[in-house]
Design a protein around this nucleic acid. Structure first.
Lengths: 686, 686
DNA sequence: AGCATAAATAATAA
DNA sequence: TTATTATTTATGCT
């Protein structure tokens, strides 16, 4: 298990939940294609500003389909209905992933984690390597440090610089989902060893951040409004991507504003607003486009950062699940840092509505950051069940390395780095598919999670708390090192299960409940809907990453867990087309099973297959399951050029870490489908 | 409600088409019959074009290959079981397309709308061209105007002529649910309203916007907001993004507005609205494409705007529920004109019973009316909420145009005509599934309904009363010209609500009471049982028209209205298997919700879906339910030839009145099933 | 609580 | 590129 899935996109959502309002930050979306829709999700990112500010937003969008992200982790905590602040953070965290990130290491704030990072870390980006300038980093960091505001907190991710950069610069990382999306982007491996892949240039991103943030904030503060239109227009010209991001942000901002300003009711509204994925989506799509991409990324990133940071703390706590996470778990958190996140990520979200959609949603990204190090990085290769290599993930860590970037790298914790933990990393493929993995530091995780805990913490009132647990568990799992996640997991589960009685009359589905804003939502009978949503999302991603079908999961569960877990049940769970009660009951089982499956997968696909019960293959190539992110990326590419050259196909395949043939076929089928569908109604829809 | 999200995608799409994106056009269908029946609807497409009269076609087909269209054109005829002829027509119409419609644009605003239309509009039908006679139209119109009965009110849709036509001619549309459903004949009167969806040209939209916008802004300004923009702007550079941003914002704006204005409840609604991503999404997609982008944007806005506008007044009223809506909101309404309509209403029907089935049903139509250009046909397409096209129905409008058709036939009332009744037609598919449509004459409906009357009026203490109000409002809105149905509607409602205390001892169910002659019946403890019965009937029809299942309604209500409104409750209400007291209590809630749902539906299915559940729409086509007859026919064909050619598939589809793609897939799945089973057998022995 | 199968879509064949 | 098949997912209905 290791793998850390990470995914979350949403970080955002959570906040929502927690707060009454929600903030949505995200976006997501999906898209679909006609007939076939594709979904796309976007996510949004929030961004927050980063730095300094503190808070963050979150988005929430949901996308169509499904997107619902939820950040779970954090969310978990957050989820709490009420407590926003903390929540927020969590939410923010969501995306984080970035792989790993070391979190920031900097010194930070709260707990320390940040502090480390203070030193700037360079970040590497793949494509365009950019580097953040120290200053920038600093800025970021400081921002982070500063105020982890209630709402969202940004995460920092220190990256190592790939190339030249010296040690300084701390980079923030974040991962934007966006990244994944892009088809192109570098992936995991990045050269530097580092994991991250940022599709965009680091520098730019950084820059942006700096600049942007401020603005945003400012803006936010100010009021806004109306002008919107104006603004929009203005804006448009440039690139898409950014815009997207911005877009997203705005929502948040709005939200924020709303909260502040508005009354409760208002808030809700705001929240909802946030939700709108659309925006996000747009962004996503946009992203795909090459050119766009970079910009996109940047945008994205920012948000994440924010999120991440936030999460860290929160997230971890969350994971703890049962236990109330404490806020301060900071320490723990820090350590965990990278790891924590990952999982987290999932939690989140609210929203989504219907199950169906959800499914679409998609996914989460994953990131990987890698460190490079000259020294020694170790990375693991990750492959999905399909055997496709998804990525590698390095582990990493020494902080040192960070610094040096590559160089010193490996040295471990040496210095004090706290970090250490390596963290699990996730690996993602460009698609964001998860590839990940966790990493090491399981320990960390372990420690982190569970108990790190605290009592107090989050306390969420609700039973659930734990949703997170799952993650935690996961995280743990991942880490090679360690783990023993399960316990926690279990607990978590237990937690989940525990709570409970549902009152639902008619039993609306989780998706429905989640989607609805009204209720403070996300909490139903003690069940943290957001968490479930987040989990469902993450589950799908992780399942796909393992190359498993719903049928396989169902069969395996039936065989191992007991009675009956049909394909239909899995399908419905993923789509949240089930009642909260049922979801609550099923979640732990799935969590546990998935963690185990991931562990087996680490050992080798075959092992996984055996675990699953599968048979060997047959003649026909096993049907490839593209992750939502991959689909997004592919669709983006398709829009740009429906008939890529062999060279282009090769590149795309490389980016996404899928077999070239698979990509080629995808284009063939996509063209075919488009042809078929285009005939359909215009009206109808879509 | 207020908020108008607007979104429909469609708008966008259209333009989009150009783009790569897709726009599906598809159609869909559904069906339902109890058990199994399916109903099929036709699809239609709109098109716009319109050419002359005539015909049109439509087709829908999708497929690649062949056209699948359903349009029944020829074949259809046969199929129908029952009422063939008429039915046919309807079917034929389907495709209509024509889109577009200018809505009314014409001059007249408020009220006037209709008048304009007077000029006849020709409608085209495909297969069997039918034309409405002027009288019919007139009837329709009048009907509308008249009394919108409580239950359903018909909508009028003014159409503008596309091409040549000048402004005049308004078409009425309506759709009876019934139509669809019953196979047999025409419906009774359904009055159904339908929603229109207009695919109209951009310009129009634009126009709208202008008008609209202002409003919005204003609203927005008032409230908050935003700096966002500012911020956004700053940040974003790019184009697309902004767009997105805009989109987003709007929502907010809306919300804001809503908040300000609305009452609490309202607010929520607003919020929801906001949520709807769709718009956004659309935008997003659009965005990608460069060119499109702007357009898209615009589109989006418009809708919203519109909605907003309309809603505000009307909607608000409706939602307001409690408060009595004012009639005069007319003004507002008028402006809105075209837009408003959508929601139509359906009154109609009977039918469906069980929920389950119902769900399948689906249904609702929407229509689009188009005007035709040249000749003047207008036909409308009806689609259900699902976006599935149910049928088209020609309106007719001027007889003149008709001419073309079959001759002069219809002469209509020529000028003055308003159209009249169109007559409903039913369309059935070969399967006997109902497809129909109803027709015009709303009148019927009106009368049908309850008494429109009533004095009391709105006032109702409770919130409820008014459920109708909403409709009324709607109606109003719609009709440019006319109408003021509300009163009646309101009254009706009021009646229901007002009364009150129940004494029922044991609480016989409403159904029991109603059925019983004894009581003079229909009045029990001050509760107008007839009214409730009528409402329940209308509710079901309208629900089905929207393509919603009892479950969806229950879930949505649970989410928004409160605690518990299970599917069972909805079922019992529709069946009147509840006590008068309970019915009395539930009615307003349902009324209110339904009105809102219809408004959303007007905006677009997706919006409806979001409203209901949440999410954006999605993609996956609704699972088709084949009627036993169809299955028999398909199996017979399969035995003869398991691998029909595209041509053959097309023919089969035509015969059965199913979408070609559906038939194609059926064969694929059938072959697959056969293969699988045969294998099994082999192994297993059997 | 699922089964059966419609729909979607990756893989193949032609 | 088009037509089909093979797999998977989703969903109506019970």
């Amino acid at each position: 298990m290791l793998p850390s899935p990470l995914m979350n996109r949403r970080c955002f959502f959570q906040p929502l939940d927690s707060c009454p309002l929600k903030f949505p930050t995200r976006d997501e979306q999906v898209i679909v294609m006609p007939g076939q829709e594709t979904i796309r999700v976007l996510e949004v990112e929030v961004d927050a500003s980063l730095p300094a500010l503190g808070s963050i937003g979150n988005p929430e969008p949901q996308g169509e389909d499904s997107p619902r992200a939820e950040p779970a982790e954090g969310s978990d905590q957050d989820t709490n209905p009420t407590n926003p602040s903390s929540t927020r953070i969590a939410e923010a965290a969501v995306e984080v992933l970035a792989p790993v990130v070391q979190m920031v290491a900097s010194s930070a704030p709260n707990s320390m984690a940040l502090s480390q990072s203070q030193s700037p870390v360079p970040i590497t980006v793949q494509a365009s390597p950019q580097i953040l300038t120290p200053d920038a980093l600093t800025a970021l960091i400081s921002g982070l440090v500063a105020p982890p505001g209630s709402v969202g907190q940004p995460l920092l991710i220190p990256l190592s610089v790939a190339g030249s950069v010296g040690g300084q610069g701390a980079g923030c990382v974040h991962l934007p989902d966006g990244l994944r999306r892009d088809p192109l982007g570098p992936h995991r491996g990045d050269p530097a060893g580092s994991v991250l892949k940022l599709p965009f240039g680091g520098l730019q991103a950084a820059t942006l951040l700096n600049t942007v943030q401020p603005q945003l904030h400012t803006a936010a503060q100010t009021v806004f409004q109306p002008q919107l239109h104006t603004a929009a227009q203005t804006i448009l010209q440039p690139q898409m991507v950014q815009t997207a991001a911005q877009t997203v942000l705005q929502p948040q901002m709005v939200q924020t504003a709303a909260q502040t300003i508005l009354q409760p009711q208002m808030v809700q509204t705001a929240a909802q607003t946030v939700l709108q994925p659309q925006v996000v989506q747009t962004a996503a799509q946009t992203v795909l486009q090459p050119q766009m991409v970079q910009a996109a990324v940047q945008t994205v990133l920012q948000p994440q950062m924010v999120q991440t940071a936030a999460q860290t703390p929160a997230a971890s706590a969350a994971s703890a699940v049962d236990r109330a996470p404490e806020p301060n778990s900071s320490v723990a958190t820090l350590q965990t840092a990278g790891l924590s996140f990952n999982p987290a990520i999932f939690s989140v979200a609210p929203l989504g509505e219907q199950p169906q959609f959800i499914s679409s949603l998609t996914t989460t990204p994953i990131f990987t950051s890698t460190v490079s190090g000259v020294a020694g990085l170790a990375s693991q290769i990750i492959t999905n069940a399909q055997g496709q290599v998804i990525g590698a993930f390095p582990l990493l860590v020494n902080p040192l390395s960070l610094t040096g970037g590559p160089a010193a790298a490996p040295t471990p914790p040496a210095q004090g780095l706290q970090v250490q933990n390596v963290t699990p990393q996730l690996v993602l493929n460009a698609q964001g598919q998860i590839i990940s993995i966790g990493n090491g530091v399981a320990t960390t995780m372990a420690s982190a999670f569970p108990k790190p805990t605290v009592p107090a913490a989050p306390a969420k009132s609700h039973a659930q708390g734990p949703g997170v647990a799952g993650l935690a568990g996961v995280a743990v799992t991942q880490s090679a090192v360690v783990i023993a996640p399960q316990p926690s997991a279990v607990k978590t589960v237990s937690c989940l299960s525990s709570p409970v009685s549902l009152n639902l009359v008619d039993s609306p589905t989780v998706g429905q409940l989640v989607s609805k804003p009204q209720h403070a939502a996300t909490e139903e009978d003690g069940i943290n809907l957001e968490e479930i949503r987040e989990f469902a999302k993450g589950f799908k991603i992780r399942r796909l990453s393992l190359g498993l079908t719903q049928t396989q999961v169902g069969q395996a569960l039936t065989a191992t867990q007991g009675p009956a877990y049909s394909q239909s049940a899995i399908c419905r769970f993923e789509k949240l087309d089930i009642t909260p009660k049922s979801a609550q009951k099923l979640k732990p089982v799935l969590e546990r099973w998935l963690v185990e499956a991931e562990l087996w997968n680490q050992k080798g696909q075959q092992n996984l297959m055996e675990f699953v019960g599968g048979e060997p293959s047959k003649k026909r190539k096993r049907r490839t399951s593209f992750t939502p992110q991959a689909i997004e990326a592919l669709n983006a590419c398709f829009e740009k050029n429906a008939l890529p050259t062999g060279q282009e196909i090769t590149e795309i395949a490389k980016e996404l870490s899928y077999d070239r043939e698979v990509v080629r076929v995808w284009f063939c089928n996509r063209r075919q489908t488009l042809k078929n569908t285009s005939k359909l109604n215009v009206f109808t829809v879509q």
